[in-house]
Simulated assay, not measured.
Amino acid sequence: MKAIILAAGYATRLYPLTKDRPKPLLEVAGKMILDFIVEKIDRVKEVDEIIIVTNDKFAGHFEDWREVVSYSKLITVVNDGTLTNDTRLGAIGDIQYVIDTVNIEDDLMILAGDNLFDFELTDFVAYFNEVGTDCITSYVEENEAQVKRAGVVELDDSQKVLSFEEKPAEPRSNYCVPAFYLYTRETLPLFQKYLNGGNNPDAPGHFVPYLIDEKTVHAFLFEGKRYDIGTVDSYESVKEIFENK
């Protein structure tokens, strides 16, 4: 299994904090966001390589980080060659770029580089191995306003995904889907097929409704908190939460 951390965005909503520094390398409670994520991947025995996909503006920052950290997995930094927010490939475009550049032929874990979370990725992979299908993650969101700002799925009794809708005005459930995914190696060609069809290359969640029309997908239901760092306010809030833990 390979793990891709999506870190090629420009985080313009966090300016000026991210004008000259990539969001995953911002600090929370004395540790970089990226280190919280990589520590959890490092505990997954199936993963043999962690690939950080970034852009030309920030590739050097991640190379410098890689030089000073010590993890058990091989860490590769892939530069997608973009320099501005307007020319970015989008998350799905970046996934395909990594598949082509690194020649990935393994099962694939995909994670956003700006989310902190309580659950263990070892549990997610154990579920993936148990059900034997592509897997997304989901949790119960009690805040109705937040549900309408998220990707929302319907599930059957076996946690099979029946439908997915991004930012629904009338949500069909309160199962929200953050950017943590596990895809089988057989699914990888569908990323190129999706892009060739002219579909949205941006947020990784856009691939989910396409995929459930092609294959069976299950949802790993996790408990605990998940923090999406998208704005200065959310970043300051997360820092306060972690500093008080």
Rank of each mutant, 00 (worst) to 15 (best):
D106G: 04
D107T: 09
D107R: 02
M109D: 07
M109T: 10
I110D: 06
I110Y: 05
L111N: 03
L111W: 05
L111F: 07
A112V: 09
A112S: 15
A112G: 15
D114P: 08
L116A: 06
L116S: 04
D118N: 11
F119K: 06
E120R: 12
E120Q: 13
T122F: 11
T122L: 07
D123V: 11
D123R: 11
V125L: 05
V125D: 04
Y127E: 02
F128N: 01
F128T: 02
N129T: 03
N129C: 06
E130I: 00
E130G: 04
V131A: 10
G132C: 09
T133C: 14
D134C: 09
C135M: 04
C135Y: 05
C135G: 04
S138P: 02
S138G: 15
Y139M: 13
Y139C: 13
Y139S: 12
V140R: 07
E142H: 12
N143H: 11
E144F: 13
Q146V: 14
V147I: 15
K148N: 07
R149T: 08
V153K: 00
V153P: 00
V153F: 00
E154N: 12
L155P: 00
L155S: 03
D156C: 10
D157V: 12
Q159N: 15
Q159A: 12
K160G: 06
K160D: 05
L162A: 10
F164M: 11
F164G: 05
K167S: 15
P168W: 06
A169C: 08
A169H: 13
A169Q: 13
E170I: 15
P171W: 04
P171G: 04
R172C: 03
R172V: 09
R172D: 01
S173I: 01
N174I: 03
N174H: 03
Y175E: 01
C176H: 01
V177Y: 00
V177N: 01
P178L: 10
P178D: 08
P178T: 10
